[in-house]
Design a protein around this nucleic acid. Structure first.
Lengths: 370, 370
DNA sequence: TTGTAGGCGTTATCAC
DNA sequence: GTGATAACGCCTACAA
């Protein structure tokens, strides 16, 4: 067993007051196999063949109601649970899907996981969540291992993996179903759930300019995320529509995390000619920017307005002062899962209506300029 | 396919400006089986028996170095990946462990998942993350399904599931290995990783009283979490040691989330006789409290000090003004995973040294009172 | 509508 | 040290 807490002990700038331990107890298991009921036993209990039980398990047609009832009862009585391993080995399906997730925002990951898992539960499919640190590299390798070893029935990809062409073509070569969440490009042969980020960002800037803002700072997400570039483009379009020149000095490259907001806002505040509003390209960033403004004694929104995308309902909950575009990640996760799980083949380019809303709480609306 | 975005369209207090759609494309898969290499093929390629390949795969003893090398090479050439399903079905192990996680803080969930996953990768074990909404009920049922269907080699539990006695005894009855992260009670027959929360909280209060604080507000976590009660107890002890009376008016019951911090701080501010410091029982709470203070124009730490537990390194990153107890969830996750994955049997009550640190950044130390 | 035989890819058991 | 052979629990294909 290795030392825990590596990297946590160097605290140069801190002073240590307390000292205690993580203590772990270990109770060895006295091995003893526990037998679980099998299909065979269910079949015997119900007085039918194994295949018949398999039929009701898989909800196949051509079974008399009486037999089905008998089998159901037997399954219930024995508390029978089919073995995933055996089903996966023998059958064509594994009843598992994989969720491949890399994102600097825990809130985002959480929302996606929760949404996908919910749908999976309903479909009696198991979700294998695979949180990634893209930084560690070898995504392709890991993904191949995952696929080869667990044989998922399908995958859901989130940015930026949605845009790794080698990954996509690899998946396609293996004839695997997969759905992309907010991909950069809409490949015609790739299922996806997404919104028009460019338009959304443009609308937000329009909203700001209508309130008189003409100097609007922008804090972008990480360049490897397509949505960041899209929101950036929308920002530029919005400015253009209002006849405002694009000023690179007030456009800051961030990373879709809280810290980016803090640092971005600090840089904007340090400028000689401060913007009157900050448009953050995610709610984490917006939250960070707000924190920095507060710390610097800048009143929001009187001195400076902050707006952003509310990807994870974070802003909605905790930052009432924030005017946001509600881009519900949860709903996107539902859509992606439904798409993957739906058996309807040939559902080409279905559209799910969804209102993208710019909101400002009545308690603290945008502050008009001048 | 169902409507996405349910619940996102009612926005009474908001005004809608933009409107767009989530659009989904669907590309049906032209089914085609892809054959992956099996042990048999590896055996033929290496000119050995199937069993021999299995031996090197499982790292068994009693193999000549030459054969092992031959097999390794063959496996590499064929890019062989063993089938999880087959291994699980035939063998005694499934090479999977389950992480059962319910927590209101996405940051916490993320830390635990990342930590456990890291260790699992190293041990070539797959982590099945099972995020839970405790609210949904039927935990026991779900857990049983999970165990019966996936046959994990072990489980890691996080609060509050660590304290559901029915779950624990069920797991024990099934002869399953499991490790508890921060359990309420140290059952002697249960592996666990934890710290002394009472002592830590006491230290923090001592720290505050040494700076002259005598009226210290406390915002607790959700009552179903044992750590909350422990930190609460430590708070009380710390007061007692300084000869300060415990005042229930400034102790607020929260839920271990950001919102609790916001609301808790608001209530403390509304008091006629405000506390000079707030001790939050988690970093999410502390962050929320800080946000509220900032919004209310209260200067931190000049007007009011805020301290808390830094469970997730959230405070460390984003709230430099915060004095915290560093209780690294990541390290605890490592410890739990190591414990579960270690094959050493009979490692009774091993202790991992770990310094629990109270820190205050030099930039903004606690503000002395008077 | 129901049942029978065979096999999925690996590990366990027991000989050699 | 190494190799045959029988499981593991379920699904597919085909026959009845």
């Amino acid at each position: 067993m290795r030392q825990a807490g590596g990297g946590f002990q160097s605290a140069d700038e801190h002073f240590s007051l307390g000292c205690t331990v993580i203590s772990v107890q270990h109770s060895p298991m006295t091995a003893a196999p526990s037998r679980k009921p099998t299909i065979k036993q269910v079949a015997e209990a119900a007085g039918v063949s194994i295949k018949t039980v398999s039929r009701v398990l898989n909800n196949e047609r051509y079974i008399s109601a009486t037999l089905r009832a008998r089998v159901d009862e037997a399954m219930h009585n024995l508390a029978f649970k089919p073995s995933q391993a055996a089903r996966a080995l023998a059958g064509r399906r594994s009843h598992q899907i994989a969720l491949i997730c890399d994102n600097p925002s825990p809130y985002y990951v959480y929302e996606v996981q929760a949404g996908v898992r919910e749908r999976c539960m309903e479909s009696h499919v198991r979700m294998i969540a695979q949180p990634y640190d893209i930084g560690a590299g070898r995504v392709l390798e890991d993904l191949r291992d995952l696929v080869d070893q667990t044989n998922p029935d399908g995958l859901i990809l989130t940015p930026p993996i949605t845009d790794f062409t080698e990954v996509l073509s690899d998946l396609r070569a293996r004839r695997l179903r997969f759905v992309c969440l907010s991909p950069a490009i809409r490949a015609p042969d790739c299922s996806a759930a997404f919104i028009d980020n460019v338009a959304a960002a443009r609308e937000m800037v329009n909203h700001l300019t209508q309130f008189g803002h003409r100097r609007i700072g922008f804090i972008a997400g990480h360049p490897s995320y397509a949505t960041s570039a899209q929101r950036h483009a929308g920002y530029a379009q919005g400015l253009a529509q209002a006849g405002i020149a694009y000023d690179p000095d007030i456009v800051i490259e961030g990373q879709y995390d809280f810290r980016s907001g803090v640092e971005g806002a600090a840089r904007l505040l340090a400028l000689g000619k401060r913007p009157t509003a900050i448009f953050a390209s995610s709610d984490d960033i917006a939250a960070g920017a707000l924190a920095m403004l507060h710390q610097s004694g800048v009143a929001v929104p009187q001195d400076m307005s902050v707006t952003g995308f509310d990807d994870t309902a974070l802003a909605e909950v905790v930052w009432p002062a924030l005017t946001t575009i509600r881009q519900p990640t949860r709903a996107m996760a539902y859509a992606a899962a439904d798409l993957l799980l739906s058996e309807g083949v040939g559902v080409e380019h279905r559209q799910i209506e969804h209102r993208l809303i710019i909101r400002a709480s009545a308690a603290s609306p945008l502050h008009p300029i001048r």
